[in-house]
Amino acid sequence: MFYFLSKTVSILSDAVFMHGFLLTALLGFMLLKRTRKFAVVGLIIVSGASLLITVIPVGDVLSHPLETRFEKPKLSQIEFAGTVTLAGSLDPDSYLERGEMNVWGSADRIFAMLRVASLYPDKPVLFTGGDGNLTERGFSEAVVLENWLDESGLKTSNMYFEEKSRNTHENATKSLEVVYREWPELAKKPWVLITSAQHMPRAVGVFRQAGWNVIPYPVDRSTSNDIHLASLNVSDGIKSLGRALREWVGLTAYYWTGRTDAWFPGPQDPGAEN
């Protein structure tokens, strides 16, 4: 039930979806004489808001505290049992339509995983994530990535893949099941958590609540410390706002339902046990 509700809320809080939906609805109202005035006012408001969030980088402003919540540690200076990398880097539609593995905006997650697997061959490197779609469509990001790495000669013996989880909560719980099954002696030790910087606060809170002792390793940061007025790129402005809203709404929903240990999880002693 939570999975269905979380995906529904995610869709409704998607700024790109809502922007398109509102424009379509208002254009429809333009066809009806009695709602034409309402539609004109609505189009003016939506157009003005679109321009405002483009000139003033609202998405970056909301994203920046998420992306700077955790500093990236130097792995050579910390003790850790293994790493967990969250899915979210592959384009499902490309694979389902053409059978091709295409990487999109969060490719740094995979690059970080490959680097750690090479530098620390004695430590387990776990990749977790199936398909976050509401309906079953025969896709699993972990399976696709594992097959591609194997065929490319990049898969190492310390790589493992959890292929069933559909959201961050299931990433945490199902991956923990793998750890207890494969390396029970490492289950309570610190594990490095690799995901996009914007997603890291929610991921950390969920993993801690599930029983993990995690060391955040944020990648794929998109904002800078200096926020400037954005260019007149409406599409990028709306997408940026949508990504930020998704995380803030997700943090709130996960906290209300008891799936994170705090509303806005923050740093703690890397060696501290949960």
Rank of each mutant, 00 (worst) to 15 (best):
F4Y: 12
F4D: 05
S6K: 12
S10I: 04
G20M: 05
F21P: 03
L22A: 03
L23V: 09
L23E: 05
L23W: 11
M30T: 10
A39L: 03
V40R: 09
G42S: 00
I44Q: 02
S47R: 02
A49V: 08
L51G: 10
L52G: 08
I53D: 06
T54W: 13
V55K: 15
I56H: 09
L62R: 02
S63N: 03
E67P: 01
T68A: 04
E71R: 15
P73S: 05
I78Y: 04
S89K: 10
L90F: 02
D93G: 13
D93I: 15
V103Y: 14
G105K: 11
S106G: 01
A107Y: 12
A107P: 07
F111L: 15
M113V: 06
L114K: 12
V116M: 07
L119V: 09
L119W: 08
D122T: 06
K123H: 04
G129T: 05
G132M: 01
L134S: 13
R137Q: 10
R137H: 11
E146R: 12
L149H: 11
E151T: 05
N167F: 01
N171F: 12
K174Y: 14
L176N: 03
Y180C: 12
Y180H: 15
E182Y: 13
L186N: 01
L186M: 01
K188S: 03
P190I: 02
P190Y: 03
I194E: 10
I194R: 10
I194S: 10
T195M: 09
A197E: 00
Q198C: 10
H199N: 05
Q209P: 09
G211V: 03
V214E: 04
V219E: 00
D220Y: 07
D220A: 06
T223I: 04
D226K: 15
I227D: 00
H228T: 14
L229E: 11
S231P: 13
V234C: 13
G237I: 04
I238E: 04
S240N: 15
S240M: 14
S240T: 14
A244W: 07
R246D: 05
W248P: 00
V249A: 04
V249T: 05
G250E: 04
Y254G: 02
Y254R: 09
Y255Q: 02
W256T: 12
G258E: 03
G258I: 05
D261N: 08
P267Y: 08
D269Q: 04
